[in-house]
């Protein structure tokens, strides 16, 4: 029983032409169509996520992993042509076709995205607690004390000092802001959390703590996750299975330890050999 499955997911920025798919990708060595100049951000991506599973997506910048993550997380982005389908167990139809209202409802109850860039995910003028509360309030919570209690427990769970709850978010450290994002993403007990580059901008020592915190919560709350990262260490720690992307295509996939210890594709071998 699959929770989320993608079939032939494609996003092309630009006019697009007949040749786009054939002349881009791993074999072509580019994601830009030489015929029309369109950028094939990702193409023909199939994947499948089950309840409680963590799927890793690795690749260098420009490999299409963030484009894919945005599509899976219902991120509103009107740019580009989108093809393929994404099926979600708790909603009939193709998630790539849903209207704004449905998208909003799903994002406020089922699928959460932790943005790569903190500014895209948080209102830095609101308090940290306010940013977390927004998800609850948007999904219909109307009791102030209930909201306070839930926000405080999410702060505890994500290891943010509760006494900082009412301080403006721009006064938080990068690691705390990332935790606020995660707390916000978890606030409405989603079925799926999509983490886009969860360690971006964090000190190495902070990275490990944030990942550890997320892994603990992911297991305790039985939430499924898709973790997108250029960092092999991130998927090693979090993901059961991993996809490797390059030039907009999935070039290798399998058990995370298999991909990392017995990489088949030349690019994956290079990626692993160049990592320390």
């Amino acid at each position: 029983m699959s929770l989320l499955s993608a079939d032939g997911v494609t996003r092309i920025y630009g006019s697009g032409c007949e040749a786009c798919r054939d002349r881009t990708g791993d074999a072509a060595g580019t994601n830009q169509c030489p015929a029309c100049g369109s950028v094939v951000a990702c193409a023909d991506v199939d994947l499948d996520l089950q309840p409680r599973e963590v799927l890793g997506i690795v690749g260098e910048s420009g490999s299409g992993k963030s484009s894919l993550a945005e599509l899976l997380a219902l991120e509103p982005n009107q740019d580009g042509h989108v093809h393929g389908s994404v099926e979600y167990a708790n909603h009939p139809g193709n998630l790539l076709d849903v209207d704004y209202e449905t998208r909003h409802a799903l994002r406020n109850g089922h699928i959460s995205l932790v943005h790569q860039h903190i500014r895209d995910g948080l209102d830095l003028d609101f308090s940290g607690g306010g940013n977390v509360a927004e998800k609850l309030l948007a999904s219909g919570w109307r009791n102030y004390e209930d909201v306070r209690e839930r926000v405080a427990s999410l702060f505890e769970e994500t290891e943010i000092p509760v006494e900082r709850m009412d301080d403006p978010t721009h006064t938080y450290s990068g690691g705390m802001q990332r935790r606020v994002q995660i707390a916000r993403a978890l606030a409405i007990n989603p079925e799926i959390v999509v983490l886009d580059e969860p360690t971006t901008g964090l000190d190495v020592s902070v990275q490990a703590r944030v990942l550890d915190m997320f892994r603990r919560i992911q297991r305790e709350e039985d939430v499924a996750a898709i973790v997108v990262s250029h960092d092999l260490g991130v998927v090693r720690l979090l993901a059961d299975r991993t996809l490797v992307m390059r030039h907009g295509r999935v070039i290798e996939s399998g058990l995370t330890d298999r991909v990392l210890e017995d990489p088949h594709h030349e690019y994956t071998q290079t990626l692993i050999n160049s990592a320390i």
Binding site: H104, D123, F126, S127, G129, G130, N131, A133, E134, K135, L137, A138, Y144, V147, D166
Partner: peptide
């Protein structure tokens, strides 16, 4: 979509 206004009220009560 009035979530932001609700946060404003929330922060008002906090203050």
């Amino acid at each position: 979509n009035y979530g932001k206004m609700w946060v404003h009220l929330y922060e008002n009560v906090v203050e």
